[in-house]
Design a protein around this nucleic acid. Structure first.
Length: 949
RNA sequence: GCGGGGAUAGUCAAGUGGUCAAAGACGCAAGAUUCAGGCUCUUGUCUCGCAGGAGUGCAGGGGUUCGACUCCCCUUCCCCGCACCA
């Protein structure tokens, strides 16, 4: 059955579609428009199956809407903003062997490699590939409207400039200062994916406490400033590098690596001299609050590159401190080694200052002993620290030795205490990574406070309120569970940096050192699609796209005359742009993977609300799960990403689309399986064969009316599934269910295929057109002999008049009886392999149907009620038994009458005969027989007696 | 840790208080067709059963109910996000 050549058919129709320009959306006021969009594709690699999954959803919906008569607008652009593309170019330029190998493995030919030093070339290279892949995949895109972000496409850059000038004018862009994880080598913030170590680690603010020492301060850092009441000594790493430095006019003693951090955190630092930690050992400093002098002691657990390299010791509550102190007590050589007396630390006593239910007086001591921790370098010490911290934070209370803070819960003290300490000038603060972060370039990162960075004020409560409101009142979210994620994101969102200093992008017009970053130049570009056709066709330059023009088109904030004057464009052309925008906007539908809810998709809502006038805001969003291939999660690091091109080449577009549509829906992850795709391919070939070579009769029989009735439900279900982005369910109802209906049809009708059979098959093709459009076109041409395109056919509508519930129930009865016969047959056949001689079927007595109909009225006491009926009472015991059974099994019901059952089974006698190869099949009323099995008959479940040869 | 989504037969999945031993798909097995293979078709696919039955079962544990995959509580595991990055 290989008369259907998918590859040839697909290429043919793609060519014809392009030739007829059927996906080019133009203003047509007589039709309703529908704008769908798929995120602009990042051009640092090939389109993979994940893109395929989401883009399939968009295309299927676009095609579905088109069949419903909408003027569908589906444009596609490209993304080049940010570091990765530039990074590749730079690494290739440097001859980085790893990068070159990766590119070669992904199929970039040797001849290209030299050109890969140019980011423009890279993005172009992948753009051409991606466009080809999308086309081969059968996407119904209007290619006249494409663009690339960044200055690689100056008109688009102009649009971004206008967008940001507008946002700034409206007060949504502000200067701000913010701590970021910083790489001093790369001179840029280090994002999660740029880290060798420390994924997910974020800045944490430590409190610095100033302990008077000599003519300055020794400055330890802590997350637990409240423990200052229990401080007993200070820890310094004797081998570490320290400095004496002037910090904001004061003299501080801190570790050497602290200097850069303080500088990057907006402190003025001047190093006076450098020295080894050893120099401090044995001296004393003054503990504020407690107002006593404490000793400075050696500790190897102190790391100079963590915070300030100075640690205050609270041995009663901090396991590290306790272990280090115990070391000094038990190993005098650790002191004598530095020229101190062996008993130098002997006089230090633990000071308990937090009382916690379930913990003893000195929790650190207890836990160290319990866990059997031997040295201060034991990794379990960290675990112990966490445990105590959690308990003390949640249920600890400050003890009476904590002055005015006595009795306050630890969880509540921080805020006032820090305020008080700051007021007394005892403290300062410092940002540090929660745990070490190493950049891809191998540099250990620290926190820098970026000054004068540009932020979008997503934290603005009024803006949030508008977003919440719009989401709640106007937006449809698929699947419904995703809505909560949007609500959560809106609540959680804060001001977000919208520009960086490196990478590709559009410079901020008023501060061109800063470049608009990727999540910020991809929020409202769908509006640019509406005018992109004209921009592209007329090769408009940035000068021809002044703010006034955009203000006029998109915001009604400038007049046509102003726009004309500033742009120098023809009035008519400007009007045309305006018309395109007004006609095609708002964006009706957008789809993406669910991970983008937390940034891009929500920004998309926010910025539309900010920039455009009412009535131009997003309406529907679909957020789908991640896709796995053959059960494996795809990830770039695991190197198992599969390109869309690969599967399209292997299976063809329709089968690939089918496989993707069928592999998942909704919020949970999807799993793409080759076996499903192969199977889909075979089914299509079969359907093609049947429709082109099959013989159909014109005679309409009961089974034809039955399948037409079924078909109406299939149509309604499938339409509903498409509307709700459930492609898998759409295939289930519109493809597999119909095929199964057809199987039943064939089984019942023998070899004859009547008009219902053909109608069902053709309807199946119509229902599947959004998913397998090339196949549908081929059927349309070869079977329907149509001159128009299948993708312009109207989507089927259910015809209520064709629905015949009684007929469906009768067929169901016939089927149930078949299954019962088979069950009995199999149970017996196991022991005696005999052929069937006779099947007797007994239809239940009339009174039973009456019982059912009485029960349908839900009487309080079924038995009492039925016994009021003369005909039922006559059945006596059997009636009571039947009623009891019904009460046990309330779900059971059958609405067919005795007469209808008899008629249905009579119609199916030939079928049973064929099916079971029985010599004789008879049906009769149970009342007319005295066979024991006749008494087993019930409505919907006739009695069955089998006789063997 | 926090917020959200999940866990159903060999696999993917439907099912949100009662014909549920659980749709559908895939896989697998047997039979038909075929010189053979493939395709296709039919049947089967938790266990037991000499008549349509019974048992076990929907991550684990407990509860509500005449009745629970479905409702409530606890536990375990998986996925997404927790930002300045595509």
């Amino acid at each position: 059955m290989n008369e259907y050549d998918a590859f040839a058919v697909e290429a043919k129709w793609q060519k014809r579609w392009a030739k007829a320009k059927i996906y080019e959306a133009n203003v047509d006021q007589s039709r309703k428009k529908f704008l769908v969009s798929f995120p602009i594709v990042y051009l640092n690699g090939k389109i993979h199956v994940g893109h395929g999954y989401t883009s399939m959803k968009v295309d299927v919906y676009a095609r579905y809407k088109r069949m419903q008569g909408y003027n569908v607008f589906f444009a596609q652009g490209w993304h080049a903003t940010g570091q990765p593309i530039q990074g590749v170019a730079e690494r290739v330029k440097k001859g980085d062997p790893v990068q070159i190998r990766i590119l070669k493995q992904s199929g970039v030919p040797e001849s290209e490699m030299k050109k890969f030093t140019d980011p423009l070339h890279i993005s172009n290279y992948y753009k051409i590939l991606a466009k080809k892949t999308f086309t081969k995949f059968g996407m119904s895109i209007d290619w006249r409207r494409e663009f690339v972000t960044t200055t690689l496409c100056p008109p688009f850059s102009r649009f971004i400039e206008w967008q940001y000038e507008t946002l700034r004018k409206l007060g949504y862009v502000k200067k701000g200062t913010h701590p970021v994880v910083w790489c001093s080598h790369c001179q840029s913030p280090t994002g999660d994916h740029d880290r060798l170590k420390g994924e997910g680690v974020s800045p944490v603010e430590f409190i610095l406490l100033k302990f008077p020492f000599e003519d300055g301060y020794l400055v330890p850092a802590t997350l637990r400033p409240e423990t200052i009441f229990g401080v007993t000594n200070m820890w310094i790493n004797p081998d570490g590098d320290y400095v004496e430095a002037e910090v904001d006019g004061e003299k501080w003693f801190v570790s050497e690596p602290t200097v850069l951090k303080l500088e990057d955190q907006l402190h003025k630092v001047k190093v006076i001299r450098k020295f080894k930690g050893l120099e401090l050992i044995g001296k004393t400093c003054h503990a504020p609050i407690r107002e006593v002098d404490i000793k400075i002691l050696p500790a190897t657990f102190v790391e100079v590159d963590h915070t300030t390299g100075v640690v205050m010791s609270v041995p009663s509550h901090a396991p590290f401190d306790y272990v280090a102190l115990r070391d000094l007590w038990t190993k005098p050589e650790m002191l004598t080694k530095y020229g101190l007396p062996g008993d130098f630390a002997a006089d230090i006593q633990l000071i308990s200052m937090i009382k916690t239910e379930g913990l003893g007086e000195h929790p650190a001591k207890d836990i160290i002993e319990k866990m059997g921790i031997q040295t201060q370098n034991d990794p379990k010490t960290e675990e112990a620290t966490q445990e105590i911290y959690k308990k003390e934070f949640h249920s600890g209370v400050m003890r009476e030795n904590c002055g005015k803070y006595a009795g306050i819960k630890v969880s509540e003290i921080k805020e006032h205490l820090i305020k008080d300490l700051k007021a007394q000038k005892i403290s300062s603060s410092m940002w540090e990574t929660a745990s070490p972060v190493i950049c891809r370039c191998q540099t250990k990162n620290h926190i820098k406070i970026l000054k004068d960075q540009w932020f979008i004020t997503y934290g603005n409560e009024k803006w949030k309120q508008r977003a919440r409101n719009h989401l709640a009142k106007k937006m449809t979210i698929y699947p419904p569970e995703a809505r909560q994620s949007f609500e959560y994101t809106i609540d959680w969102l804060q001001d977000k940096a919208c520009a960086r200093k490196s990478g590709l992008g559009t410079p901020l017009p008023w501060d061109p050192e800063w470049i608009v970053e990727t999540l910020s130049d991809s929020t409202i570009y769908m509006a640019f699609y509406t005018i992109a056709r004209i921009v592209n066709e007329h090769n408009l330059t940035p000068e021809q796209l002044p703010n006034e023009l955009f203000d006029y088109i998109f915001r009604n904030k400038a007049t046509l005359e102003e726009a004309q004057k500033k742009s120098g464009l023809d009035m008519a052309l400007i009007k045309e742009m305006k018309e395109e925008f007004e006609y095609f906007y708002p964006p009706d539908y957008r789809a993406s993977a669910k991970e983008l809810i937390f940034n891009h998709l929500t920004f998309y809502i926010f910025q539309h609300l900010a920039v455009f006038p009412k009535g131009h805001y997003p309406l529907e969003i679909e957020a789908n799960g991640m896709i796995q291939v053959e059960g494996d999660k795809m990830s770039k690091s695991a190197g198992n990403t599969i390109s869309l091109d690969e599967i399209v080449q292997r299976f063809g577009a329709d089968a690939s689309r089918f496989g993707l549509a069928y592999c998942g829906e909704g919020y949970t992850d999807a799993s793409f399986r080759y076996a499903d795709v192969e199977a889909a391919k075979k089914r299509m070939s079969m359907i093609f064969h049947e429709l082109t070579k099959g013989k159909f009769s014109d005679e309409e029989r009961q089974i034809d009316r039955w399948i037409l009735s079924k078909l109406q439900t299939r149509i309604a279900d499938t339409a509903n599934h498409y509307q709700n982005q459930r492609t898998r369910s759409a295939i289930s109802s519109g493809f597999f269910d119909i095929l199964n209906d057809l199987k039943w049809y064939e089984a019942r009708s023998g070899a004859i295929r009547g008009p219902g059979y053909r109608t069902a098959l053709l309807t199946l093709v119509d229902l599947m057109t959004p998913i397998i459009p090339h196949f549908a076109e081929e059927i349309n041409e070869k079977v329907r002999k149509a001159k128009t395109f299948a993708c312009h056919r109207p989507f089927p509508k259910p015809n209520k008049r064709l629905i015949n519930k009684k007929l469906e129930e009768e067929e169901r009865l016939i089927r149930n009886v078949r299954e019962d016969i088979e069950g009995i047959f199999n149970a017996i056949k196991k022991r005696q392999k005999k052929a069937l001689e006779k099947i007797e079927i007994f239809i239940a007595p009339k009174w039973m149907y009456k019982v059912l109909s009485i029960r349908r009225q839900k009487p309080d006491n079924l038995i009492a009620k039925i016994m009021q009926e003369e005909t039922i009472r006559k059945a006596g015991n059997a009636a009571a038994k039947y009623a009891q059974k019904l009460m046990k099994n309330p779900g059971y019901d059958s609405t067919l009458s005795q007469r209808a059952e008899l008629a249905a089974i009579t119609d199916a006698l030939e079928y049973y005969k064929r099916e079971f190869k029985a010599k004789e099949v008879v049906v009769m009323l149970a009342s007319k027989s005295d066979h024991a099995k006749a008494r087993a008959a019930e409505p919907g479940r006739p009695g069955i007696a089998l006789t063997f040869m």
